[in-house]
Design a protein around this nucleic acid. Structure first.
Lengths: 331, 331
DNA sequence: CTGTTAGCGCGTTCAT
DNA sequence: ATGAACGCGCTAACAG
């Protein structure tokens, strides 16, 4: 009734359990004939190794713990896609948790994931509770902190400098001759990286002797709907601005929709600039001017580096996956 | 160096391992005083239970295996979001695999997930290899097959009838007076449900004495870009059609973009109809007419039903999460 | 190249 | 209300 075990395979193939185990894990030399016998027994019995037992015996597992702040923001599914791509062809399985941007939840997820003795834990950003940081530091699993490289990681950070991305946005707009620049954003508590980009933007403007003309931030998460409404509200107050930087593409696409509905010429009357380089922005009648963040590459690179070495680096490693300006036609 | 075990906690709290285990799992009566001592010891040591050991001993685990065909299609991250929502507050952890629409890959994922003795396995659709079906049938874990209810499930199916959704699209357009209807779609091999909707559409038209005027299918997966190009191509051949049904919203949004660029009045000159009810479609200057599929509800409902009972139903259970027409302004 | 011997850390069963 | 003994299925270390 219950599933066959190593012992069943061993007795059918007339070898020791150990030999079966070796065949399965492809470890050490096995006589071709025995290997064949064992494989046949495995097939005949429909044997599937019990990972829990293996994990207990070896105190390690082929699990990759993945902790994401959200699944609603398209960016994270894309990171997850990169992680999957990096995992393809290996026998590692991702085990996923979602924090909803709650550091306490992250802490408890880290603890449950650690309970499975994963090969690595991948999480987001640099902010963790003290307890979470301690658990990660004390454990020996590899740790990847994604998206953001403006900090010193526990083991490995992969991402881009959001501060620098903000500065680049400023430089781009200034280079195009825009001077009265506004900002439309979403909630920074839930998204520190959006805040970092904002700070970079302000700094970039300051270096050119400019300041942000006007800004409007919504309370909730980013969305096209929120961006549409928030731009409308901003423009009702500030009619003289000539460009708007959005916290990300979702918001910017919403802004574009507002301009279309309100018949505002983009970019002649108002220029729009986003962040992320989502496909939808590039499908607009005028492709959105934005910054391409390499979400997919971030996930994939992180996995590859993490799996390349089972031991942590002596010195924390930082990998910059960079970003690039998509010129577009809206700014 | 290595993490503390039950035994460490037990000796610190001066009780037997067994008592500690009971406290942790909240099973049986424990004297308040001992419970307190144990909890303090746990905290002091930073004890985290080893799940692999627990799982081995109990031959069960709090893992939910989730198998998705793709992470690129926004629909599946949304299902995953629903799954997470259903799992919130429980101690279950999703373990995820992605098949890339490859049934062989699904088979091997099922086998690796089964190796962890999960509480349930959630997968997509009704199509599986014979071996995969056998593994699922023979195991005792609960099995949820999502998205599609036009088939007899192994244990539980949650989703909607795509055939019926297609018929509804036909009825809606006919009711609005459209008669020369075209179809723009993506690759059906990768998406049997899109095919089912197509069949429903054709059937719905036939019942009204109509036929599809013209159709165009791309080879790759759905995307706004593909939809844009495919509609352009279709219109170059068939200038007299008055409405187009798309395989889904991604394609339809692309079609909308083409109409904007080509200055085709929607819906006056050409009506557009999608499927899924994605947010982006509703943000267009004219909200997309489409059918809302409840991806989130599908994931959440499935998890809730699966966890409600650790034993399989004697009879396969089918749950229809339904769909609804979003009237929109494009058809 | 293969077998033997010992656990891994926990849950279960039976006592008390 | 608590403890003792056993074994889950596998891998590791050492023989040979």
């Amino acid at each position: 009734m219950s599933s066959p075990t190593l012992a069943d395979v061993a007795s059918l193939a007339d070898v020791s359990e150990n030999t079966v185990s070796r065949v399965i894990r492809d470890k050490g030399y096995i006589a071709p004939a025995t290997r064949k016998r064992v494989n046949e027994a495995i097939r005949k019995l429909g044997y599937v190794p019990n990972r829990a037992a293996g994990s207990l015996a070896s105190s390690s597992s082929a699990i990759i713990g993945v902790i994401l702040p959200s699944m609603s923001n398209i960016v994270f599914p894309e990171v997850l896609r990169g992680i999957h791509a990096g995992l393809a062809g290996t026998h590692y399985q991702p085990m996923i948790g979602v924090t909803d941007y709650d550091l306490k939840k992250e802490e408890s997820l880290i603890s449950s994931l650690l309970a499975w003795k994963p090969a690595a834990i991948i999480t987001t950003g640099c902010e963790h509770t003290a307890a979470a940081r301690r658990m990660l530091k004390n454990s020996t699993v590899r740790v990847g902190e994604l998206m953001d490289i403006d900090h010193r990681p526990i083991d490995l950070a992969v991402g881009l400098s959001h501060l620098e991305a903000g500065r680049s946005a400023a430089r781009h707009l200034i280079g195009r001759g825009y001077a009265k620049i506004g900002y439309v954003g979403h909630d920074w508590n839930a998204d520190k990286r959006a805040h970092a980009r904002y700070l970079g933007l302000v700094e970039g403007l300051r270096q050119a002797g400019l300041v942000l003309s006007e800004e409007n931030r919504t309370n909730g998460p980013s969305s096209t709907l929120a961006g549409k409404a928030a731009l409308a509200e901003l423009l009702s107050r500030a009619k003289t601005i000539d460009a708007v930087v959005f916290s990300n593409d979702d918001m910017a696409v919403g802004g574009y929709m507002h301009c279309m509905a309100a018949e505002i010429a983009v970019p002649e009357t108002l220029a729009l600039f986003g962040f992320n380089g989502l496909e939808i922005g590039q499908t607009l009648p005028k492709p959105l001017s934005t910054i391409l963040s390499n979400r997919f590459a971030i996930g994939k690179t992180a996995v590859e580096l993490l799996l390349a070495n089972s031991e942590r680096n002596k010195k924390p490693q930082i990998v910059d996956t960079g970003f690039s300006i998509l010129e577009g036609s809206t700014a």
